[in-house]
Structure formats: C-alpha cells, structure tokens
Design a protein around this nucleic acid. Structure first.
Length: 301
DNA sequence: CTCCGGAGGA
DNA sequence: TCCTCCGGAG
C-alpha cells in the first residue's frame, strides 16, 4: 500500500506521548530532576517488582535518612532491613546496601556513568542499569521493562507480548524506535513506561483514555488475545515460603531495636514447623536474620 | 481470590 | 532457561 496512513508512525507517536507525558505523568518525588543520581537508582531498585505508589513514602524516608551511597554504606544492616519495611523482597535492601558500599568505595560515592559498570553493581540488572543511564544521566539508551515491552508489542505489532526474557528482536525494535536526540529518547522511555503502567495495562487497558489509540494496531485489530497470555507464570503467595519468610521478618522488624525473637515466639508465627525452620534457614542464608545458639533470632548487625 | 512486577542463582 | 524471591490493590 503506497499511502497507508494507518501504519503507526514512531515519530508521530513519540510526539503524542511527549505531550501526554507533560499533562499525565505522575508527580513522583524522584522525577523532574528533583533527585540525585543515587536517588534515581534507589527509586528504581525499590520499584523492582513493586508499584511506584507504594514506593513513594519509603523512598522519601530512605533518602532523608541516607541521602547518598556513603551514608547507606555505613548503616547497620538491621536498620536497613527495618527501613525497607513492607516493600517486599527484602534481599533487595541488602543488595542496595552492597551496591552503596561498592559505589562509596570504588567510585568515590559517585555512580559510574556507563551501562556496564552500573550492571556490575549488586541488585542492578539490565532494566535498572538502562533506567539509570536514561533517567539519571539523560543518555540515549533503550529501556526495556514489561510495560515497555507490552506497549511496543501492542502498538506496533498488534499482539500481546510474550512472557520470558526480552528477545533479541524485541531489543532491536526498542532500539530502532528510540528517538534520535538524547532528550527525546529519555522522554520516550518515560512516557512509554508510564503509558504501560497507567493506561496500557496488562489486563484492562484504558483505550478510551489513550493518547495514541488512533495509531494502535492492537486496538485496530480488536485487541486480539487481550488478557489471555500471562507475561509470567502465576505466583501464589498463601502458604508459600515467601509468606512465612515475610511473617518472620515482619515480627523481627516490629520488635524494639536490638531485641531478639525468642524461639517460642517464632513458633507461634506458623504451624508447620518443618516449613518454618526451612524459611528461617533461608533467611539466615540470605543474611536477613541471625540465629543465636539458644534458637532465638535477631536482625543482623 | 487474582493481579502486577526485575534480579540472580541453579 | 527456569525458578524463587513479597506485598498491597482490585
């Protein structure tokens, strides 16, 4: 077809999303240049597997208490674990502190500015390294998370994205769609991700509120397979080790600082003694708790 | 109850 | 490549 005006045009979509970003972006405290590079990294680590809205109060308190990598590096582990609160996946808290130590010691308290150096930091994977490069340093780099994968797949391919790791084709597509200029690329990453988080959601996309509904192949095709395919296998929580670990750690966090959880108290948290012990052992392995000779538990020092 | 989401280790 | 790691919103 010679003049297919319906074919999605990346430049046109980028313009529309940039305009939408100006009016619709959530006012998160680490956005719009208000946070340090380190603050941006902390926000990204906290946002791994956790909704931004839940992160905000934790991030604010965290950055007030430990404004930079050096400050976090010197904090007692127990305080770090406690401050992580109910964000979930508390190993992230320890990795973030390890990251802070690396930054403080090896990089003189300044985040490194290359993707490879960022990627090598504890708790920093492809997504976080790319996000810091883009959002903290303003570099032109394709950021790929599940929101961006979903939006790009729907808008340009008219399909739901597959689960699993991003394929080389997906990565190449993401790079190709990136606007030429640095500033444009940053806004592209932020706006596509924001669209995926708030409008182009996985299960019930709000197409009537979408600024690029007129350019979307997925919508034009009648949203084929909407909600049929999961981006990842379903994860149960009730009865799992994750729930038990959460109960134990939460009990420790709620204790007065420095005090221990007696064995009897721990046993009251979960009926299945075998599973409880396995979870305590795994928390110990992770460095999230310490077991004393009498069987009581405490947060690590 | 179901949904959502990166890193790292096996 | 698969699996485990959480908690709160809907």
């Amino acid at each position: 077809m010679m003049n297919d005006t319906k074919n999605p045009n990346a430049a046109d979509i980028a313009l529309r999303l940039a305009a939408w970003w100006e009016t619709a972006a959530r006012d998160l405290p680490w956005r719009f240049g208000r946070a340090s590079d380190w603050g941006v990294l902390v926000s990204e680590v906290m946002s791994q597997q956790t909704q931004m809205s839940r992160v905000v109060p934790y991030w604010t308190a965290w950055m007030e208490r430990w404004p930079d990598a050096r400050a976090l590096a010197g904090a007692p582990k127990a305080e770090v674990i406690t401050a992580w609160g109910r964000l979930g996946y508390p190993r992230r808290a320890l990795r973030l502190q390890e990251c802070a130590r690396t930054v403080a010691e090896q990089y003189d308290n300044q985040l490194p500015h290359t993707y490879d150096e960022l990627l090598a930091l504890p708790g920093v994977g492809d997504y976080t390294a790319s996000a810091v490069m883009s959002f903290a340093f303003g570099e032109r780099i394709a950021v790929i998370d599940t929101n961006i994968r979903r939006v790009i797949s729907r808008v340009f391919r008219g399909e739901e994205s597959f689960g699993g790791a991003a394929s080389p084709v997906e990565r190449e597509t993401a790079r190709r769609l990136l606007p030429e200029g640095e500033r444009g690329a940053v806004v592209w990453n932020q706006s596509v991700m924001e669209l995926g988080a708030t409008v182009c959601t996985a299960k019930a996309p709000l197409c009537d509120r979408c600024p690029i509904a007129g350019q979307c192949v997925f919508l034009r095709n009648g949203r084929p397979g909407l909600g049929e395919r999961r981006t990842r296998p379903r994860q149960r929580f009730q009865g799992t080790d994750r729930q038990v670990r959460g109960l134990v750690l939460n009990a420790l966090r709620e204790l007065p600082a420095g005090s221990v959880l007696e064995r009897e108290q721990a046993e009251r948290l979960w009926k299945d003694r075998i599973q409880l012990d396995a979870c305590i052992a795994s928390l110990d392995d992770d460095g999230l708790v310490e077991m004393l000779p009498d069987g009581s538990l405490r947060l690590p020092q």
